[in-house]
């Protein structure tokens, strides 16, 4: 790159274009949201937040995202384990299918869940007969969140399990440790960074999820209205400041998680 950079005029134009693109596309919008939510003063911000529909939506989102993340960490770790440790027919296919929720448009994911579990479907009918309700209720949101964040934990744990030196495990066995103990003392600690890192990614994605959730949630304020859908509603009803206020709560949370993940990775690299 060096010599191109030496043709002064060219170089300058080029560099500034790229950096400008970056700033205008990424930095400016983010600052814009923070600016807008405080544009009518701090009091106004508080007012937007203290709207019960607003704060209830934030709490609901947090609660459901935590449930989805916990389930995902368990399922994901188990699947990562099975896909790395066992040989069985269809393994390669399953391994490719893991990424499907990333590849599928989230709206399509939502529609799939709606069709499978919705009223009139087989499962929906059975569940309804049992007296449960899934679609348009909180379980559907959790399922949608699990669906879209499915690959995170698996993809974070798999490489760690692959790297895990079998001799470490064997060493533990030769020292007389039992299976369960080896799992707790040797295998689990080496998977833990992936479980935590993948779990945090999944959590931040679940907080932000919109497409899959909006189709299955029913969006009843206070009960099944999550933050991202609330924000969308505020934009639709032409209240961007209210939308911005809730946005910056979610944004700040997500940024904090992102920062935490970075910190963890840096510590992991150092040790």
């Amino acid at each position: 790159m060096n010599s191109l950079l030496r043709h002064k005029g060219w170089t300058w134009g080029f560099r500034s274009t790229i950096l400008l693109y970056f700033v205008v596309l990424i930095v400016l919008p983010i600052l814009g949201v923070y600016y807008n939510s405080f544009s009518l003063g701090f009091g106004n911000f508080i007012e937007s937040i203290s709207d019960p529909i607003a704060w209830k939506s934030v709490l609901l989102t947090l609660k459901l995202a935590i449930i989805a993340t916990v389930i995902n960490v368990f399922l994901g770790t188990m699947i990562a384990w099975v896909l790395i440790r066992y040989k069985f027919p269809g393994k390669a296919l399953l391994n490719s299918l893991v990424d499907l929720p990333f590849a599928l448009p989230t709206a399509v994911g939502g529609l799939m869940i709606l069709l499978l579990l919705g009223p009139g479907s087989l499962i929906g009918g059975i569940v309804e007969a049992l007296g449960f309700e899934i679609v348009f209720h909180q379980p559907a949101i959790v399922i949608a969140m699990i669906f879209v964040t499915f690959p995170f934990v698996i993809r974070a744990v798999q490489p760690l399990l692959e790297e895990l030196d079998p001799s470490e495990e064997e060493a533990a066995y030769t020292m007389g440790a039992k299976g369960g103990r080896v799992f707790l003392r040797v295998i689990l600690p080496s998977m833990a960074p992936g479980m935590i890192g993948g779990g945090m990614l999944a959590f931040s994605r679940a907080l932000a999820e919109f497409g899959a959730v909006v189709l299955v949630a029913g969006n009843i304020p206070g009960r099944t209205l999550v933050s991202s859908v609330f924000i969308f509603g505020e934009v639709e009803s032409d209240n961007p400041v209210g939308a911005a206020a809730v946005s910056i709560i979610l944004l700040t949370l997500s940024f904090a998680i992102l920062w935490l993940i970075n910190m963890l990775q840096m510590r992991g690299r150092r040790s």
Binding site: I26, G32, V229, I231, V235, L251, F255, N262
Partner: peptide, 23 residues
């Protein structure tokens, strides 16, 4: 700059859209 690159990952798409509407 390097850490800013990741920010869109953390931003809910709806918020991303809202940002552009606001701006």
């Amino acid at each position: 700059l390097n850490s800013i690159v990741d920010l869109p990952y953390a931003v809910s798409p709806v918020i991303g859209g809202l940002m552009i509407v606001l701006l």
